[in-house]
Structure formats: C-alpha cells, structure tokens
C-alpha cells in the first residue's frame, strides 16, 4: 500500500511543483505574486481540450498552442499590470491579480461554460501502466508523462537562470532592482519575461494535468494554493526547493489520506503552509529571508 501511495503522491507533488515553479519565477525576478496563475493553469487545460477534443488534433499540436495562448495572456497581463510591478505596489499588484484571476476564469466560463460541466481530456499517451516489483508499484503512463514533463521543465528553468543572459538579468533584478537599472539591465524586459514565463509554466502544468483529472472553470484556485504552499515550503526563492516542496506536499496529502483519514487530506495542505510560514519562514531549503521587523 505504501509504495502505491508514495508513487501517486510523488506524481501529484511534481504537478504542485510545476505550479510552484511559476510562483518562484515571478517571485525571484519581480518580487511579485500572481493569483491568476491557477486560472491560467485551468486555461491551459481548456485550450488543450479545445485542440485535442474539439478540433481533433493530437496532443503534440496542443502543447505549442497552449504555450502561445499563455504567451499572449502573459504579455497582456504584463502590459496591464506594468504600472504596479515595483516594490511599492506589491499589495496593489496582488489585488489586481485577484481581478485578473476573475477575468480569466470568467472568460473560460464564457467560452466553455455552456458545453458541459466537466471535461475529460484524453491521455497524452495510452498504454498499460508500468508495473514494478510484482505490482507493489503501479505507475500509469500519464503519471510518468506528468512527472517527466515536470522534471524537464525544472531542468530547462535551471539552465535558463544559470546560463542565459536573460536569466542572469532576472536574478540580478530580483536581488537589487535599483542597482540592476543603474548597470543598464533592461528591467522592463526582465519583468515582462518573468510574468510571461510564470504563466507559461502554469499553462503547461495545466496541459500536463488535464488528462489526469477532469477540467472545470473553477479548478485553478485550489491548485494555485497548493502550488503556493509548495513554493513556501521550498523557500520561495529556490527552483529545486519549489519542486521538492511540491513533492513533500503531494506525499503528505496522500499519506494523511491513506493512514489517518481522507477527511483530513484537505486540511493537511493548510497546516503545512502555516507551519512552514511560521517556523521556516526561509523555507526548508533556505533562500532569502522575507521577514519583516
């Protein structure tokens, strides 16, 4: 039982980790948080539904379209929120992103709301699950794809931040926006890319998640919350921390559900967030402090 639980906890957790990745990218580069991330994740799911089911193209076609839509939404969000993207306006920005979250959710409902209540997106790959150790571990291919996608995204991000100019710019803007501006780093470009990247990774997470669940317009918020929890557990500023935080959360949930009570499952995420915030304000894996006076 334990091995089966762990396997599905890890798969779910990697998904939370992907959302957390989006949270961390924006937090790192722009010191900002975006409530509409979860709804863009849902949008990713709905767009892949439209491409795969409604238009009848394969999942391979869905991914680029999901990315393009997310790019579009990202640039639009940036243009809209640009006046608020500095340190003075953190709370105002947060409030505005709540508005953005409503906008995205409302738009999803307007487009797909009348076609049914819940949509199923066919699996990205089909085939029998991988059975290891005499059935002690059963890994459905979808979980494997989900996990693989998450790991790939993580690797891409790590490379991006370490080796590309834009990535380095982003890091320096996050560390000290004023100094970055003085040395001539294009702050606007950095903030814009951070917003776009964070939404693209969320939409891709939605694309990966969609086949494993049923999609509906309201799915975004609770996923964002879990992703956020993962980011907090991981220390908010660390990319690997975000993914490990996600896995930790996913595993905790499934273990609580399996060994304590399935009623306590929903609670475990919130307890974890609270504990992490109060006792590990720098996250379990360090990172910059964001403590106040």
């Amino acid at each position: 039982m334990l091995s089966v639980l762990l396997a599905s906890g890890v798969a779910n957790g990697l998904l939370y980790g992907l959302v957390a990745l989006g949270v961390v990218v924006l937090a790192k580069a722009a010191n900002a948080f975006n409530f509409s991330q979860g709804d863009v994740m849902a949008l990713g799911g709905f767009v892949s539904y439209a491409v795969i089911v409604t238009m009848g193209y394969g999942s391979v076609a869905a991914l680029p379209i999901v990315v393009i839509v997310a790019l579009f939404v990202g640039v639009l969000s940036y243009l809209l929120l640009r006046p608020l993207m500095d340190a003075q306006h953190a709370v105002a920005l947060l409030t505005a992103t709540i508005g953005l979250s409503f906008l995205v959710k409302g738009t999803i409902r307007l487009i797909w709301g009348r076609q049914g209540d819940y949509f199923a997106v066919p699996p990205l790959v089909s085939g029998p699950p991988i059975i290891l150790f005499d059935g002690a571990v059963i890994i459905p291919l979808q979980h494997l794809v989900m996990s693989g996608g998450a790991v790939l995204m993580l690797a891409l991000f790590a490379l991006f931040f370490r080796f590309t100019r834009l990535g380095l710019f982003m890091r320096s803007v996050a560390d000290n926006p004023r100094a970055a501006r003085i040395v001539g780093i294009p702050t606007e470009l950095v903030l814009c890319s951070a917003m776009v990247l964070s939404l693209v990774v969320s939409a891709v997470a939605g694309f990966l998640l969609a086949p494993a669940t049923l999609i509906f317009p309201d799915m975004g918020f609770s996923l964002f919350l879990k992703g956020f929890a993962a980011a907090i557990i991981g220390g908010m500023m660390s990319l690997p921390g975000a993914v490990i935080g996600g896995v930790l959360l996913g595993v905790t949930e499934v273990l609580v559900s399996g060994y304590i009570s399935s009623t306590a499952q929903e609670l475990s995420a919130f307890v974890l967030i609270f504990v992490a915030l109060i006792f590990f304000p720098r996250g379990l894996f360090g990172g910059r402090s964001s403590r106040s006076v």
Binding site: V4, L5, V254, S257, G258, S262, Q265, E266
Partner: peptide
C-alpha cells in the same frame, strides 16, 4: 466512510482503503 473532495485529482488512498 471516505471523503473525496471536489479539489482532489487523485483517489489512490481512498481506493486502497475501500479495497482493503
């Protein structure tokens, strides 16, 4: 007597408990 919420994307634990 298990709970499975609207938010859940995974029911592994519930299935195993019911199965057992």
């Amino acid at each position: 007597d298990e709970e499975l919420s609207m938010e859940a994307n995974d029911a592994t634990a519930q299935v195993l408990r019911v199965q057992g």
